[in-house]
Every structure is written in C-alpha cells, then in structure tokens.
C-alpha cells in the first residue's frame, strides 16, 4: 500500500518536473497521441483497402489494435523505467537507489514513470470503443472480465519483456536493440490476431511471449469468435500464462541484480 503511495507521489513529482517546461510537455503529449494516431490511421487505411483479414472484420481489427495499445502503453507509462537499468548503472544512479531502504525495482520504476504516455492510452481506448461498436459487441459481465484479464495479463507479458530488456541493459546498453525487437515487434505483430501469421511467429507469441494466450484468446471471446477452436473456458484460463511468464522474468531479473551487486560496475 505504502509502495503504491510512493508510486503516485513520484508520478506527481515527475509531472511537476515536466511542467517546468509546459510548452514542451504539451507538445510531447500531442506527439504521443499523434504517434499512436498514425498507427491507428494505418489500421484504418488497411481496413479501407482490404475490408477484412481472414475471419476478422474491420471492427474486430480495430478492437484488437485498441486492446493491444492500451495494454502496452499502460505499461510503457508506468513501468518503462525498468529498461533504463543500463544507463542508471553507468551514471551511478543505481548505487543511490541501493542506498535507500526500498526495493530497487520500485525505485527504478518510480524514477522514470512517463506521464506523457497518457494520451497514447487514450487513443488506444478510442480505437477499442470504435472497434467494439463496429463489431456490435454486446457487453456481459464475463466479457468485461475477459477484457480485464487481457489487459492485466497482457500487461504482465509486456512487463516481463521489459525485464528482459533490463537484464540486457545491465550487461551492456548497446545490446538492447535485439530485445527491442521482441518488445516492439511483439506489440506490432500482436496488434493483429495471431492466426494470420505463419507457424514460427505463432509459436513465438504463444509459447515464448504469450500475447496470443493473454490478449488474443480473451479478445476473440469478446468478439464472439473462436481463435484456436478451444472451449470458452480457455479464454479465461490461458491468460494466466502471462502471470507465469512475468514471474519467471522477475526471478531472472533478481538474479541479474544480485550479479551486479557482487561485481560492481
């Protein structure tokens, strides 16, 4: 509870620090919206030209895009900080964090919360609402639960990917681009339903970075379609895999941090 309070206090302070340069901050808020807006436009233009993709209608695609964006940018906003372990090690800021009676992870995340991403989340929500309307989704309690699960567990997968980046960045800042492929590539790829991809990509995003299980299954359920032909219960059980993925990455990151503490920089 106390940690969450610290989280919000930090957010408030970072906001204040951004507001020291109000014009720049507003521009950055806009640019975040424009950035995701550009991608949204791409989806809309694709729908305009191609109408549908396999079994998915235009509205479905928008909805997929919206859920993925909301999930991703919530994490980007609240937890992107973990991937900056490398620069923090270099600048020695990590030492300062270790000198405080709080978890290092908490502090690193608090240090780099990113309030600018809020507008991107809003664009994602807009896409979700638009897509839901076009696909005539009738909301039920179960569908709301599925959506919540998608966002929470999908978010945990994103966080797990961030953790991988963090581990890499402790070792060397330059190697991070490879992992970036998985994080941003995962987002780009999985804003479209998984069944359009060839086997290797399907396996990658099901068994390794399980976006298909955490986001695509529950979203298909919401849209009234069946992704893999599994029973409906799968839409509620499979997202839990995201929790497992997160836990594994969390443990690995803890090991990496212990390694840092015994080797120094």
């Amino acid at each position: 509870m106390d940690t969450i309070r610290l989280y919000f206090r930090s957010m408030k302070m970072l906001l204040r620090s951004h507001l020291q340069y109000p014009a720049s901050f507003i521009l950055q808020l806009c640019s975040q919206a424009v950035m995701l807006g550009g991608e949204l436009l791409a989806v809309l233009l694709i729908i305009d030209r191609f109408d549908s993709l396999n079994q998915w209608s235009g509205g479905d695609l928008l909805f997929f895009f919206g859920v993925m964006s909301v999930t991703f940018y919530i994490m980007e906003c609240f937890a992107r900080g973990v991937t900056s372990f490398g620069p923090l090690v270099q600048k020695g800021t990590l030492d300062i964090f270790l000198l405080r009676p709080r978890g290092v992870l908490t502090q690193v995340i608090c240090y780099q919360l990113d309030p600018r991403r809020l507008t991107a989340i809003l664009v994602g929500v807009a896409a979700m609402v638009m897509g839901g309307r076009q696909s005539n989704v009738t909301w039920t309690a179960l569908k709301a639960l599925a959506l919540a699960e998608a966002i929470v567990f999908g978010g945990l997968v994103v966080l797990g990917l961030f953790f991988i980046e963090a581990m890499f960045s402790v070792r060397s800042v330059k190697s991070i681009e490879v992992v970036n492929a998985l994080t941003y590539g995962g987002r780009s790829a999985c804003q479209y339903p998984i069944d359009i991809y060839p086997e290797p990509l399907k396996i990658l995003f099901t068994a390794v970075a399980p976006f298909a299980l955490t986001i695509h299954l529950p979203v298909s359920y919401i849209l009234g379609k069946n992704l893999f032909g599994w029973p409906d219960a799968a839409a509620f059980l499979c997202p839990l895999a995201g929790g497992a993925f997160f836990l594994i990455m969390y443990v690995l990151l803890q090991f990496a941090l212990r390694y840092y503490r015994s080797t120094g920089s």
Binding site: S175, E177, V178, G185, S188, Y192, I196
Partner: peptide
C-alpha cells in the same frame, strides 16, 4: 559498435518478416 549494428539488423529483419506476413 558492431554489436549494436547486428542487433539493429536482427530487429529490422524481424519487423520486416512481421510486415510481410501481415
């Protein structure tokens, strides 16, 4: 920074494959 370049290449190839698949 050959390592970084290699990372960049892999990243770009991965994106390319995803787009082509789409």
């Amino acid at each position: 920074y050959r390592g970084a370049a290699l990372g960049g290449i892999l990243c770009q190839i991965f994106f390319g494959l995803i787009l082509v698949a789409l």
